[in-house]
Design a protein around this nucleic acid. Structure first.
Length: 427
RNA sequence: GGAGAGGUGUCCGAGUGGUUGAAGGAGCACGCCUGGAAAGCGUGUAUGGGCUAACCGCCCAUCGAGGGUUCGAAUCCCUCCCUCUCCGCCA
């Protein structure tokens, strides 16, 4: 959420900044509601003040043993008028709040102009895509020939966009999780965390998935709980309604969870394989930082995610998302894209974002600034480090051999009892 | 799941309808005292919002959440959430 008083004071400027991401703010509507809010709020508060004064004097009269009947008569229809004024104010505030909750974050000045991914800017590239002296296969072919991936089986058990993994591929999948957690926890200074996979609506409102993006989530009606679409939701909400001491910043968490997404808006997109699934594993990096340090934190966090790919020796590039491609809550996002020989393309494997105070305001996550002595909003930064399913795909496709076997990256061999190949081949 | 107890400010804790935004204590900040410190004494110390160009100031809201009763609710009633104790069940 943007700062309501700032929107009020710099409405036109705010609207102009939002056009960078293709969002049209209805300035006239906000102005109208705001004017009505002001009028209604002043009216309601004056009536409340009147009520408070009279009630107090009734109490005082009663304390002195006087007859309060005439005072009660005087109050008359005040209560009714007050009720009406409060109801009117509540309705206006509700309407205003609905609009406010639906306004996306303002893109940072360094975010490139543009409306779709074609306008994203590549900032760096690492590694060279390997040359194969045979036609490289994609992970679906590889997985099925190894009898290690079951798309049909998963469809039978659950439905489309699920997978079963077996044997060494399942072990490799698990090893990737361990490897990532050890790297971020052990070397990058993140504290490993375990969280609920079901969350309440307030948590999703805090990070920005609700109220606008309910159709992307799996919802459990009976208890009104949602399956998490990313660990970002439960981890960031650890700090909802909290005030941290200055010395508690920054907070850095790494967290492995499954993620659940309905993929409602992506029918027919990436339907082959396990690139886009309803359920996937991810190791998430989350930082709660001093507002002056969030952009340094974003650079550092992106570097931490990249380090996973460097250790696995997987070629990748980093792009800055343009305004139109930016997620709802983000002020700036770097996508990390890994090379996939099966698609002959770089594909997203991590998304690292600075949300500035957008999420913090929604969830009232604050720190006490010693300079002012007052609670002020923190900044939140997070990113995937990395999406595990996609990393598995990348390892399989980049490390495949002509006979369909897969070499295991050196960084992972220790997690697999020293094993160096998966499959029938010896290399 | 059954029975009971409870959720108050940074923390502990009083308050069961009326000058209570909230006693008292702890903590913290500043001042006095001291050679310095401790102790002692004094003062201050919630959050959100509105009016205002802004400061000062004034006002409104908030005692788990949401409704209700009342001129007036932290206090009474209802619903929900959470915590604790005992019993049952259980990975």
């Amino acid at each position: 959420m943007l700062d309501p008083s700032k929107i009020r004071k710099t409405l036109d400027d705010t609207a102009a900044q939002l056009t960078k991401r293709g969002f049209k703010l209805d300035v006239a509507q906000v102005q109208d509601l705001e004017a009505r809010r002001k009028q209604a709020q002043v009216a309601a508060q004056e009536l409340q003040q009147e009520r408070n004064k009279r009630s107090k004097s009734i109490g005082q009269a009663k304390g002195r043993g006087e007859d309060i009947a005439p005072l009660l008569a005087e109050v008359g229809a005040l209560g009714e008028k007050l009720g009406e004024a409060e109801a009117e104010l509540a309705a206006i505030q509700q309407a205003l709040n609905d609009i406010l909750l639906g306004i996306p974050n303002i893109p940072h000045a360094s975010v490139p102009e543009g409306m779709d991914e074609a306008a994203n800017e590549e900032v760096r590239r690492w590694g060279e895509p390997a040359e194969f002296d045979f036609e490289p296969r994609d992970h679906v072919d590889l997985g099925e020939s190894l009898n290690a991936m079951g798309f049909d089986t998963a469809a039978k058990i659950a439905g489309k966009r699920f997978v079963t993994l077996h044997g060494d591929i399942a072990r490799l999948h698990r090893a990737l999780i361990q490897f990532m957690l050890d790297l971020h926890g052990g070397e990058h200074g993140y504290s490993e965390t375990y969280v609920p996979y079901l969350v309440n609506p307030a948590s999703l409102r805090g990070t920005g998935q609700l109220p606008k993006f309910a159709e992307d989530l799996f919802h459990i009606q009976e208890q009104d709980l949602y399956l998490i679409p990313t660990a970002e939701v439960p981890v960031t909400n650890i700090f909802r309604d909290r005030i941290l001491a200055a010395e508690d910043l920054p907070q850095r968490y790494c967290c492995h969870t499954p993620c659940f997404r309905s993929e409602a808006g992506s029918y027919g997109k990436d339907t082959r394989g396990m690139f886009r699934q309803h359920q996937f594993e991810k190791v998430e990096l989350v930082q709660i930082v001093h507002p002056g340090e969030s952009y340094e934190a974003l650079e550092a966090l992106t570097g931490h995610a990249e380090e996973v790919l460097r250790r696995l020796e997987l070629p990748y590039r980093v792009v800055t998302l343009c305004g139109g491609d930016l997620g709802f809550s983000a002020a700036k996002t770097y996508d990390i894209e890994v090379w996939l020989p099966g698609q002959d393309n770089y594909r997203e494997i991590s998304s690292c974002s600075n949300f500035e105070d957008f999420q913090a305001r929604r969830m009232s996550a604050r720190w006490r600034n010693p300079e002012s002595g007052k609670p002020e909003l923190v900044h939140t930064v997070n990113g995937s480090g990395l999406a595990v399913g996609r990393t598995l795909i990348a390892v399989m496709e980049n490390y495949q051999k002509a006979d369909g076997s897969i070499r295991i990256p050196e960084a992972l061999q220790g997690y697999l009892g020293g094993q160096s190949y998966i499959g029938n081949g010896t290399g």
